[in-house]
Computed example of a mutant assay.
Amino acid sequence: MNRALFPSTCSHVLLWVRDLHQAVANFRAAGFEVTYATAEARAQHAHIWFSQGPIIELLTTPRHAWLFKWPIDCLAGRGAGRRMLRWAAQGEGFCDLALRCDDPLLAPRVKSLAACGVSMGRAVNWRRTCADGSHTRFRFVYPRHDRLPFLVTPYEPAQHPARMTHPNGATGLAAIHLGVHPADQTALNLLTGDDPLLQIRPAEHTGVQAVQITGLTHPLTLHGARLLGCPTAQGDTHA
Rank of each mutant, 00 (worst) to 15 (best):
A174D: 12
D146P: 14
P154C: 12
A131H: 12
P71E: 02
A39K: 13
D102V: 15
G224S: 06
H160E: 13
M120A: 11
S51D: 14
T171M: 13
P108E: 10
T192L: 07
L148I: 06
Y36W: 09
R147N: 06
G121K: 01
L198S: 01
C230Q: 08
Q209E: 14
R63A: 00
F27A: 04
L58Q: 03
E92P: 01
H218E: 15
A46W: 02
A30H: 03
T61Y: 02
R147Q: 07
D236M: 13
M84N: 00
P219K: 04
A89W: 06
R147L: 11
D132M: 06
V24G: 04
H181T: 10
I213K: 01
F32A: 04
L67E: 00
T9W: 06
H47C: 09
T60Y: 03
A76H: 00
R122F: 11
I213M: 08
L99I: 04
P62G: 03
P157D: 10
I200N: 07
A187E: 12
E156G: 07
L106N: 02
T165S: 09
P62A: 04
A162C: 10
Q234T: 13
P219W: 06
V110G: 01
S112Y: 15
C116Y: 10
A175T: 07
H145A: 09
R100N: 06
A174P: 03
L148A: 04
E156R: 15
W16V: 05
H205L: 15
C230E: 05
M164Y: 02
Q159V: 09
K111G: 12
A23D: 02
L188M: 14
L20F: 04
R83T: 00
L228E: 08
A37C: 13
D146R: 13
R82N: 04
A39Y: 11
L59P: 01
H47M: 13
T232H: 05
P202E: 05
V17M: 08
V13H: 03
T165Y: 14
W87Y: 14
V110C: 05
L113A: 11
D236W: 12
V34E: 07
V208Y: 02
E92L: 02
R163H: 09
R137F: 13
H12N: 15
A88T: 00
T192Q: 09
T217A: 12
T186K: 08
T153W: 00
W49R: 10
A76W: 00
Y36H: 09
V34D: 02
T61F: 01
H12Y: 14
L227Y: 03
C74T: 01
N189I: 07
T153V: 07
H64P: 00
A37P: 01
G179I: 03
Q90H: 15
F140M: 08
F150Q: 03
A23G: 12
P157V: 05
G207M: 11
L190T: 05
R137E: 11
D146A: 08
S8V: 15
L151Y: 06
E156I: 09
S51C: 08
Q209Y: 07
A29E: 12
A65E: 00
R3N: 14
Q44L: 06
L113Y: 08
R3I: 10
L151N: 08
L5C: 15
L191I: 05
T237W: 13
A4N: 09
A76Y: 00
A225S: 13
R18G: 15
